[in-house]
Write a protein that binds this DNA or RNA. Structure first.
Lengths: 207, 207
DNA sequence: AGCAGATGCAAGTGGGTACTTGCATATAAC
DNA sequence: GTTATATGCAAGTACCCACTTGCATCTGCT
């Protein structure tokens, strides 16, 4: 199997997994979806479980780079909103896969772990960004940074993962939710749009 | 089948569902777990799907009354913390069931709906409580109530549902997280422990 | 062209599953 | 005790599934 075909199989597997879950993704289905013979899957991957684990590992859960936070904060609300918007979009696009993998925790604990890979780096990036906000005087409650970061990520994750199941529990419209989460997160940290250390032209108050 | 036995079957079904998911919960397993004959399940419930749906519907996802918010706020931080603590505990205790049901969204959409039943009432109760806080002058940003409420619920839900999968993404220790979420939520609403309308003995500042 | 390796085809193995059927036994009500 | 109903037992039906096997064909390289 050439690499393009191998990738083709892995992509087919993830698509089916998102729709049908682990047990519902049969090797016959994968073979048909990928346009290969069923026996080829076993020759190449050894077992259905190994195939699906490799497929999940190769599937990018967290889009990197798309909406990284800047090294130097310039407009915190806009920057955090852009970050939250990108995060939510990425997670939303792969929500069915995530739900299926999380549900496998008891019987195939490697699967949810594929979903959380990369989360630590993003948490660290947000932490770092908030610390810079603190250093620049944008926020007053720096002790709450870890907690506010966790709450922001939870809001984004929960919104991306479950809004289609329970739409009324989330701020409407969906496209405006990231901005709301970003704003409230900054508010909870005692945000002030004027960097205390660097007097600037007066800006309209946030509230 | 007497009602106690019927309940016994439903409880066995939910236990197995939490562990093995929909497909992995076989009728043979349910029969064994409940101590009845497999054919009895079909006589009483008609099909495996109907049995499991009834089991999920009868399973209380949101414990009512355990930690209801008071009609008249007295100590908002303590009250919201108690609420968050109770909510998180209830959801945490049934997290595996919720995960399994959410993962069935594509193929058995009735199942996640069993999980969200009752959520609206809780959201309304929190909304009402926050509005009272606003009326009493405890919070200054009443326009953000719906958003803050949603963020608080997301934090609790996400913590309860996924902490065992990805412990490092949540505030430590777990027992202290509800208080943190409650505090940050109130902070984001511009909370002041002294009710502006009712001067009281000065209290220590929150931050 | 020849050769080695990869892939396809078709059939099969050895399990598993939701559900049904016919008869026997148990239980509850009168 | 009798009768009606519920449940258990055992076997069966008609599928489903991951995986294997033997042979044929295809592909890429020399």
């Amino acid at each position: 199997m050439t690499t393009p075909t191998r990738d083709h199989v892995l992509a087919a597997a993830v698509r089916l997994y998102a729709e049908h879950g682990f047990r519902g993704t049969t090797t016959r289905r994968i073979a048909e979806e990928a346009g290969v013979n069923e026996v080829t899957l076993f020759r190449q991957f050894g077992s259905k479980t190994a195939l699906l684990l490799e497929a999940l590992r190769s599937h990018e859960m967290f889009s990197r780079g798309a909406n990284a936070l800047p090294d130097a904060p310039v407009d915190p609300l806009a920057e955090l909103t852009a970050f939250a918007t990108g995060m939510r979009k990425a997670l939303h696009g792969t929500r069915a896969t995530i739900r299926k993998a999380m549900a496998e925790f008891e019987e195939n604990p490697e699967m949810p772990r594929c979903m959380t890979h990369g989360a630590a780096a993003i948490h660290a990036a947000v932490q770092s960004y908030f610390e810079k906000l603190g250093a620049l005087g944008y926020i007053s409650d720096t002790k709450s940074i870890p907690a506010a970061k966790a709450m922001l990520m939870s809001a984004i994750f929960h919104d991306a993962l479950h809004r289609d199941i329970d739409p009324h529990s989330f701020p409407q419209p969906a496209a405006g939710a990231p901005a709301i989460y970003a704003r409230l997160c900054l508010q909870s940290l005692g945000f002030q749009p004027v960097a205390a250390r660097r007097p600037r032209t007066a800006k309209r108050r946030v509230s």
